[in-house]
Design a protein around this nucleic acid. Structure first.
Lengths: 116, 116
DNA sequence: TTTTTCACTTTCCTTCGGGAAAGTGCTATA
DNA sequence: TATAGCACTTTCCCGAAGGAAAGTGAAAAA
């Protein structure tokens, strides 16, 4: 009985975790969400706030985040047309994930430094 | 003032999140940890519990998880030498991440189904 | 008039993740 | 004796991720 349950619980957890990973995994998506969430709204500001990201990658990732309804692109008409990025309300649902990853990362770094 | 803080908070969050992503991102690492955590200890049991994984990928990912001290490989001598996998205690620290991803994934699927 | 800024795009190239399929050396089972 | 299972390894291959560097078109600033 315990054997069967093990297999079941396993898939019940793996499936939604994989759904989540499909949307937010990768090197850049969460860093971009964090940066935009904290107030960086302009392309170059976001770029400057994330060490190592190139404009090509940033443009591509922003498009994907738009498609997933996590970020919105706002065009403000004017003599220079201004473009800014904001988080959709839906992106707030990622907060628990971001904080659990942050806490784990802080702790993991401590563990690594201790050992080596 | 708020402007400067935005930039600072941003890096303070991005850095540990990226440390965490370096260890656990990718398609297979968390599914493997979930499967082993639930009691699957043999190579083929783990393989069978994760839809789509190939033995090559499973072997590679298990090695990386060993190196990160998240999984241990146990060799039991005997006439057929038995190999089993278990989670290190340290892997328990991933539980909050796994549950926040699971919850988000469940909810996300609901959202997608509603819309389409 | 020249330079700079903004928000990207384009091109080229390398690396990495990962799939398919077969093989391996051993043992257990029929 | 032949087949199946276990725990992988090996080979080949492909597409996506992602880096470097330059370009682009408009407008603002010097």
């Amino acid at each position: 009985m315990a054997t069967k349950n093990a297999y079941c619980d396993c898939l019940e957890t793996i499936k939604p975790v994989r759904d989540a990973l499909d949307v937010i995994s990768g090197k850049w998506k969460l860093p971009i969400i964090i940066s935009v969430g904290v107030g960086n709204a302009r392309f170059t500001d976001i770029q400057d706030s994330i060490p190592g990201i190139t404009p090509k990658v940033l443009a591509k990732e922003l498009k994907e985040l738009e498609q997933h309804k996590l970020v919105k692109r706002i065009i403000t008409d004017g003599y220079p047309v201004r473009i800014s990025y904001k988080l959709e309300v839906y992106a707030d649902t990622l907060t628990p994930i971001i904080y659990s990853l942050k806490d784990w990362g802080v702790n993991h770094r401590k563990k690594i430094i201790q050992k080596e």
